[in-house]
Nucleic acid binder design. Sequence first.
DNA 1: ACTAGATTGAACCCGTCAGTTCAACTCTGC
DNA 2: GCAGAGTTGAACTGACGGGTTCAATCTAGT
Lengths: 219, 219
Amino acid sequence: MRVPAARTAARGRIDKRQAILEAAFTVFARRGYAQACVQDIADEAGVAKPTVYNHLGDKENLFRHAMEAAADAVMRENLAVVERLRTTGDDLRAALEDVAYRMLKVCCGERSRALRSLTYSQVATFPELIETVQGRTSIGLGEAVADRLARLSLSGRLRQCDPGQAAEQFLALLTGPMEARSRLGTREVSAAETRAVANAAVDTFLRAYAAEAADPGLP
Amino acid sequence: MRVPAARTAARGRIDKRQAILEAAFTVFARRGYAQACVQDIADEAGVAKPTVYNHLGDKENLFRHAMEAAADAVMRENLAVVERLRTTGDDLRAALEDVAYRMLKVCCGERSRALRSLTYSQVATFPELIETVQGRTSIGLGEAVADRLARLSLSGRLRQCDPGQAAEQFLALLTGPMEARSRLGTREVSAAETRAVANAAVDTFLRAYAAEAADPGLP
DNA sequence: ACTAGATTGAACCCGTCAGTTCAACTCTGC
DNA sequence: GCAGAGTTGAACTGACGGGTTCAATCTAGT
């Protein structure tokens, strides 16, 4: 006899589908696609196995939709952080450091890591994952950052440059070192170390992209 | 009846074990751990299934050893490239661009990508993979690059800096954008674009780390 | 209360695959 | 040729899990 995970407020058919999608992502993240079995997902969602099949058909479909939903959630978080670059105060460095740190917190969060890991591992089996996931995360995030950097460049606070490339490198300077330090997410990275990574990335970024000399442009 | 892959020079027991390890990595890379079955690996190696079990015990062991061997191979390739930084000519930028480009070619190669993908996807099931693989690739590579950068810094061609951090960021500037452009390796990136990524990385790196002003130090 | 549709648990079918067994075969060294 | 170790194919076991079926149960809306 299986023991349901959260049977409390489950009986009403309110949003079974949503619960199933979240549970599915949780279990896939925990076990990997092939090792995750539908019964586990049903249990995690506090739902019977046939109900899962009723709502989402087979395992592949379930996986696709779960990944899609998770990607959307991660993207929302990331965009909220990038929005903070819209209102930069006087101190550009401080603003970038703030955004960098928050972005690292998101990108190393549970969902974000699991999403990357699952995408990486199942890209051979589900080729459309790249579009679905990358399109909703990396690519969109890159564009959002590029937009902000373009404005900063135009207002003379960064030097003339290709904003797309600048954004690409900014993100690389952030996530690359972080992945290495966290050992692909298997190791806790202290807040202090995270902040150090963010600051180092911003420092290098500004050395390479800050406007030359004392900016003579604006009044 | 199964069709063996390369039965030509297989009969002698010369290096069955080696053949099995290589075949295993090939099949794991192609199908992923869970989806790869031992029979496929045996076929790929041109060997019978019991022989696989004779040499390497169970599937988990097989996987561990195959990953270990592949990591060693990738590491050898990478170190060979980094060694080129020992003899920098007059043109530091050109030397870095050369190394950067070669490194990208290695890191986006078949083995290297498969290694990353498999590590990522199985890290939950085989926690020691991080040590085995990262220890033999990323970490060692980072240290090797840091060694070279330290020398360059000492000889006044780069500014004073923490070589470990510089290496970390140099590698991030290289691999980050490349992973994004290649869509996790599912898309061919032209040699020209690869070179552009390498040059952009070196450009940003030098802006941030080159010795200040026209170096007055050396004769 | 009544009905229709959703939900449930349990059992079931069926394919896949890890791992084993075994008798036959092949090669090597002597 | 012979002995013995290694190899082979083929068949087998047992576990696991995807997907389905079904009768019993629950819930909502009327």
